[in-house]
Structures are given as structure tokens and as C-alpha cells.
Simulated scan of single mutants.
Amino acid sequence: MDVRVLGRGPAEPFLGAQDLFETEYDLSMPVRVRIRRDPDERTWTGHYPDHHVLNISAQAATSAMARELALHEYAHMRRNEEAHPSHTQSTAEALYLALAGRRVERRKLTHCYQIANHMKDIYADDITLSVAPADKLVAFLEASLATALADRPHDPPRWQRLTPAADPDITAVNAAFALALCERHDLLTPDHRLYDLAHAAADDAPGVSIERFKHRFKTLVDDPDESEYRKALVDVTHQYAVETGQAAD
């Protein structure tokens, strides 16, 4: 596994993540880590015919989560190289199949893409959590959900939200994802704070069943074929669009 760090920033988190990753896995193509100066640059991975690129902001590269972020992205690269259906299935195709004949609010369509990303993350983190401690990830999920709940709108729901507040519906799905990932790997005690946060998220979004979404994420089969994965993605997307009452025939 060949990792090279480009740009101004520390190499240690990415090389440390490489050491952890190589205890169980490997990548056949080299990895180029590009540290960006823009503090708002999100962490994302690009896949090319002969290499992978991990793009990350300098702020994230120097954070306490830098090694864990890198490890997570290496896991996505591994899933891509092994042509796992979660990483080869066209999200646009699945959404077309799930939402054909329906008019869907733009923000809800954006949420559907986020749900598809959650499913990819489940499979990536099955790798991540097999080689690294889970404490930072659980703390990150807890803090992220708490922040979204603190930022929730206090006014009645509107068709077009005028503030940048977190949307209660997708916050509830995010809570379901967090619980599913943690329960999938037995990371939570029954009294963990994440359950209280998820309960609060459910109260804010009564049209979204956190339990049903949690079950869908948690029970994704380890090694689906293309048809099986496509059906899972179509089903969960359709469930969200219909269940939240925002799609109209």
C-alpha cells in the first residue's frame, strides 16, 4: 500500500491509518492525500484508473479525528477496488427506480442521496471497525447528533426552510444510522447517551420511524450481490420518500 501526502500538513495521521489498515487489508492502487487550505473542504475520495485521491482540509488533517477519517476513506477505497455493490451501484439509477412517478421536494431528494451514502458508510465502517478502536467514532456520532438537535428549528415546519437549521427528518434518519452502525458492532451499552439523543430526534420527526430505518441499516447483508443491494437501496429510499409524507403522486 503506497500512501503519499501532498500539501502542507502532517503526514503522521495518514501513515498511522495506513499501518492500522494493513494489519488486515491492502490496496492495490496508490493513494494520494491532498491537503487543502480551504477549511470548509469536506473529506472525500476520488477513484481513478490507476490511483485513489483522498481530499481533506488542513483543518481536518490536523484534528483529533484525522487518523480515523483517513482510515474510513481507505476503507471506501478498498470497497471500490473489490467492486462491492454498495460502491458500484448508481445512486441516481436507484432513486429513479424508487421514486418513479412521484414528485419529490428538492431537499428530500438531497436526503435520499445522504441515505445512499449512509449505506456506503455502513460497508466501509465494517472494515474500519475491524482494524481500529471504536471510541472516537462513537464519540463523533454522538457529538454530531447532539449538534444537529441543538440546531433544530423551533418554528412550525415549512415547505421552504428560511434558516440553515438542521432538518428534523434527516436528523432522525442520521440517528437511525448512528444506532445501526454501533449496534451492528456491539458498541453501545443500554444506557448510552446516543439512545437519548435518538429519542429526541424521533420526537422532532414523528413521521420518520427511527426503528425501521435502524433495522434496515443494521441488517444490511455482508456480501450482497448487485440485485440484492439495488433492492435494499431502492426500498429504503422509497420508504423515506413515502413515510415522511413529502412525496406526492
Rank of each mutant, 00 (worst) to 15 (best):
A64N: 05
S86G: 14
E22Q: 15
N174F: 09
E24K: 12
R79W: 00
Y113V: 08
L141Y: 01
A17D: 06
H185F: 03
R103K: 12
V138S: 03
T91M: 07
T244E: 05
A143N: 14
R67H: 11
A134S: 12
P157R: 07
H154N: 14
L6S: 15
A201I: 03
E226A: 05
A132S: 14
D155H: 15
H51D: 00
M65L: 14
A94W: 10
A150M: 13
P13F: 12
S86D: 02
H118D: 02
D223H: 07
P39N: 08
A201W: 11
Y96A: 09
E93R: 08
I35C: 13
L194T: 00
D40Y: 08
A241M: 03
R103S: 08
F14C: 14
R102D: 11
H52K: 08
A83K: 13
A61T: 02
H192R: 02
T91I: 14
G9K: 08
H192N: 07
A232Q: 02
D223C: 03
S130I: 01
P13G: 04
D26F: 15
A11T: 15
D222R: 07
N117V: 11
K231E: 12
P206L: 02
T62F: 10
T147R: 13
H238L: 09
T219G: 01
D125I: 00
E243M: 09
G207W: 12
V242I: 06
T88F: 08
R212F: 01
F177M: 12
K218G: 08
R79L: 15
D225M: 04
A94C: 06
H154A: 14
P153L: 07
I122E: 00
D196R: 11
L20V: 12
L129R: 02
R103N: 09
P206C: 06
D204A: 12
E211V: 05
T23P: 13
D222I: 07
W44H: 15
E22M: 14
L145S: 04
V236A: 03
S86R: 00
L145C: 01
A247M: 04
H154I: 07
A17H: 09
D222Y: 01
Y74S: 04
A75F: 10
S209C: 02
T163N: 13
A58H: 09
L220H: 07
M119G: 02
G46F: 01
H84L: 00
C112K: 07
R184P: 03
F140W: 10
H118W: 03
P10N: 10
T62P: 06
P190V: 05
H51M: 07
A178L: 05
K231V: 00
Q160F: 11
A75R: 03
H185I: 02
D167G: 04
D121M: 11
I127Y: 06
L15V: 13
D249V: 12
F217K: 01
E24A: 15
Q160M: 05
